[in-house]
Amino acid sequence: MESVARTRANPKASSSLGSRMKLFWNDRTLLLMCLPAIAFFLVMSYLPMPGLYLAFVNFNYTDGMFRSPFVGFDNFQFLIHSGTLWKLTFNTVAYNLAFILFGNALQILIAVLLNELRTKWFKKLTQSLLFLPYFISFVLVGLIAYNILSYDYGLLNSLLKTMGMDPIQTYSNPKIWPYIIVVTYLWQSTGYGSIVYFAAIMGLDSEILEAAEIDGANALQRIRYIVLPWLKPTFIILLLFSLGGILRGNFGLIYNLVGANNSVLFNSTDIIETYVFRTLVNNFNFPLGSAVSLYQSIFGFIIVVSANWFMRKVSPDNTLF
């Protein structure tokens, strides 16, 4: 610890090549331990990264990625051209924020409550059940949703009708779709996501909890003053991670729930990915895809770097990098 502080305090010492090499040498085992992961990310992620250049060329197979004619920002134009870029960006961000906030809240709630329960079989069973939706592919989720929500044949409406109520026109009512999409998301990912929090709670020294209990703290107090603060760093890491992808929409979920044609709903359901998909359907175009991806990356990058900078000021232990 002290040595870190010293080198930090004395930039001259670390700037000379010899001493820097020496520092690396001191850390050699730790560096070696990181090496497989570094190699992995270099090969899997950094090696293809120059491919983003594709966003700036008129791609043809004879010249390949890097010799195809450079066209500047031409491939980005269709995004601006459509005039809907702002709305799409807004929708995408809004959905992701809802996913992040409600998702994490529910995940924490489930994890914390699970920790309080004492019936072993119940915990095992429910946790397994919570996991199930994560394994059902989006295509099936879309089919199931239609069979529940459809006007003439849906389970929901036949239930309403037997109870003497009026059927609901789900698929022509854009207002309710944000709820449907968020609820489906929660249904699918809560069990999976709560595992992280559950594991974090497991790392909490059980002695502390027991001591609190003996001191007369009730469950609510224990949760409020011990468990939740303990989960804060995990939440922040998860948050920072999700922020990086704030402009990457959940295509599989929304496309399969809404479909490619129901423009009645698009105002409240369209995200960047579904829009791009409709644009490119039957017109395969790799550079346009790269252009959109680059836009999403830069947007996410700016958000994350600012969030990380902010975190460094507020709670320096919980930064990503």
Binding site: M44, F241, G289, S297
Partner: peptide
């Protein structure tokens, strides 16, 4: 690497 991905073609 979570922010910037090269895309499916180079990969």
């Amino acid at each position: 690497t979570t922010l910037f991905q090269g895309g499916v073609v180079p990969f």
